[in-house]
Design a protein around this nucleic acid. Structure first.
Lengths: 212, 212
DNA sequence: GCTCGATTCAAACAACCGTTTCAATGCTAC
DNA sequence: GTAGCATTGAAACGGTTGTTTGAATCGAGC
């Protein structure tokens, strides 16, 4: 029993939230699974809502720190990392989360997906803020690898990648994730490079003109 | 009052579910908003869970039908539509959902995102099944536009596109969706074409070998 | 105009929720 | 050991949930 009650609650809650969702998971389930008293959640975290935020802060900090560290390492090796290397620094830490332990990381990916789906404005803003720091770093790195890219579009494109990453990681079976991550990096790199041609498909332009 | 009570319940429930999530939305809110009695939900649908599935069936049927119809039209025009045209047939019906009425479609996109996040196995399986039909059609169309594509990868890449579409449509502000959809088509087309080169990035191959 | 099935209604049900309370216990420092 | 604070414990609170019930109302068919 070297782990504190607080940590046991965090672990149990994270697992249950990922499996069942936030609202379906009850404090009674959490405390029972953590071998703690029902009142201890409110004692340590104040409320259920604040427990959720604490869980997110813990994992998101770790994930984003790993991403930045990986990007730092790449930039230390080469002053001008190519596009694939930058994308890997973003994608692979998420992948390693999925691989560590047994399915623990995949659960967190599902948790992340739930956070995207939820309309909790406070949680959403906190996540965006937590991400903003990292996104700016990666946007710079991509700009560096792709000097002619349009910065305005880049933000949208990074959102595409986050969406593809989050949804596929949360959905896919465990053993496939390595291959999928490699494919995603390749796909995203080609997508980013392809936008350089700045070619708006004719049919899309047609649609845009028809409605403006 | 030409619309039936059943339909008023479906509309009100869809709106509330998208705004607040499934579990936060109560039958009392739904029936009050639909000018119906509390018991009417259980009368018409049996339970809350079956109401949710009815809502999904209704909209997903319409969305996928619109996509197939659009693809049919494109293929009728040209026997061999280019990649962008195929992607637009997939993306734009979702976009039109977002534009119709006032924000009604965007709400459904958020609903879709919630369905992805939820672990309701039955709902999930039903959605996959509902999608399978459409995905096969579009995979064929993409294969036709890109004859050298690897069919195995294609499935993953279509999942990427669905993820990017769903997450960004659910997140973005209303007025931006048209531009974002055009950018997504362009990004996805470039990503698909880029995979033809079959080039696995060196650093990714390094990672794959290190762990196998 | 009456009947019978479909629909609506108000009310109640049992179950569960997050939170609070307050006494009991554990642990550290003097 | 004992004072004082942090932690745990059992129980209860007020409130809300989905569902059920049984009577009231409606509306078409004969």
């Amino acid at each position: 029993m070297s782990v504190s009650t607080r940590d046991r609650i965090l672990d149990a809650a994270e697992r249950l939230f990922a499996e069942q969702g936030f609202h379906l998971t009850t404090l009674r389930q959490i405390t029972q699974s953590a071998d703690a008293n029902l009142a201890s959640v409110n004692y340590y975290f104040g409320s259920k809502q604040e427990l959720i935020r604490a869980i997110f802060r813990r994992r998101l900090d770790a994930l984003n720190a790993a991403r930045l560290e990986r990007l730092d390492a790449t930039e230390r090796q080469t002053s001008r990392p190519d596009l694939e290397a930058v994308l890997e620094a973003f994608v692979e830490p998420a992948l390693e989360f999925t691989r560590g332990g047994d399915a623990e990381g995949q659960r967190f990916m599902q948790l992340l997906l739930r956070a995207f789906a939820d309309r909790d404005a406070a949680l959403h803003a906190a996540m965006r803020q937590e991400y903003a720091h990292v996104m700016r770093r990666f946007a710079d790195a991509v700009s560096n690898a792709l000097p002619d890219a349009d910065p305005g579009r880049l933000r949208h494109q990074l959102d595409f990648i986050v969406g593809a990453l989050t949804l596929t990681m949360a959905e896919s079976a465990l053993k496939d994730t390595r291959i999928i991550a490699a494919e995603l990096v390749q796909f995203a790199a080609a997508g980013l490079r392809g936008s350089l041609e700045n070619r708006i498909p004719e049919s899309a332009r047609r649609t845009l003109e028809a409605t403006s």
